[in-house]
Design a protein around this nucleic acid. Sequence first.
DNA 1: TCTTGAAGTTTGAGTACTCAAACTTAGTCG
DNA 2: CGACTAAGTTTGAGTACTCAAACTTCAAGA
Lengths: 222, 222
Amino acid sequence: MPSETVENYLKAVFTLCGESPAGEAGMSRIAAMVGVTTGTATSMVKKLAGAKLARYERFGGVRLTAKGERAALDILRRHRLIETFLVQTLKLDWTAVHAEAERLEHAVSPVVLEALDAHLNHPRLDPHGDPIPGADGKTREPRGVPLSSLAQGDRFRVVRITNQHADFLSFVAAHALKPGAPGVVVAVDPIAQSIAVQADAHAPVTMAITAASRIVCESIHR
Amino acid sequence: MPSETVENYLKAVFTLCGESPAGEAGMSRIAAMVGVTTGTATSMVKKLAGAKLARYERFGGVRLTAKGERAALDILRRHRLIETFLVQTLKLDWTAVHAEAERLEHAVSPVVLEALDAHLNHPRLDPHGDPIPGADGKTREPRGVPLSSLAQGDRFRVVRITNQHADFLSFVAAHALKPGAPGVVVAVDPIAQSIAVQADAHAPVTMAITAASRIVCESIHR
DNA sequence: TCTTGAAGTTTGAGTACTCAAACTTAGTCG
DNA sequence: CGACTAAGTTTGAGTACTCAAACTTCAAGA
């Protein structure tokens, strides 16, 4: 059973691989995500490789093995199920549960996890719209495109927020852009690299394209 | 904020002090409860003393300071609230939740804890009948006497089980002696050091006086 | 009083993780 | 090409916790 520390590295490598086009994670990004120096990350990645959880060679990128990926999906399942529980059952604030789940995910046993899953009625999405992997590790990615790819006048519905920072989530919530919310693209300014959007019955807000890329939407054709 | 390890020592010292007539905890018992060697316990107790959480002198007993006691009660609150949650909300088995709570108690933040407390409607007893300390650390001990102190023919109601071992709890459950259950003392044999009891509408069972001392009851006068 | 055994303490070493700082590698730009 | 830089690696040391084993203390009993 991997240690809490190893689990955190696994999660970091997994998400970074998912975000990078090459499907590889760089050392400095891993270090930043886990919150350690790059030296520490290097030695821990070696450890992951030693445990056959990751593939890695000196000065090359890091990627998970099938075994490592399976472990990462298990952690993700725990994390997202806990987030769902905290919001749905305990009524905690949507923007605060990520940090809480981060601590709890290492302490829930399989028994508690499955009981939680049953209690919540086997949810498939967490409060941020992220898919919850099944007990078998299978995940169904919700389809959608980044808000940043839409054009002026496009109508959309938010399906997912892919940046868990509390500040960003508060921003999203403040402008009524939570998963499920419908809205419209008011303007796109390629020079300023910004996009203005408006959730139904809310004031419009302008944000950078980079920020909008973290809000995943499906377009509404009417 | 005390580490997970320190929290475990605190809990051990607290319970042992509560159980001992002198109100002191011995090193070997602390070590056994935490699951380390006595040498390790000695050095950790020194650390507790250094942090003003415990009072201790070489070859003397260990006891908690007011600060240490406050911390221990906080951990106990977390532990018992979590146990209550696991049984009441997640419908987990009464006999299995102790171990689960042991892992989770170190990972719940004050915010989650209070949300849990509200969700459960501020319970005052956990599934074993143990009192749940308030957020202020105040505890109301349920009154009762050990089953072992009753005499033949005495009718009683179980109020609390003070041995959390899964085996013991299963035994208790198998004979319908869970907290709240009414019963009667069938026989007491001082020579064999045993006591025979019978829960209403169940078969009688004979157990050692030592075992019966872990079942706390209130007698029923009718 | 002397011995003995149980309980407690100390020491030295090991594991898991961390950092700072010196160093290597690989790619980029003048 | 050669120098610079960003990224990655290595080293040496430190923290928190652990054990095994040698040692000390204390309280009895012979």
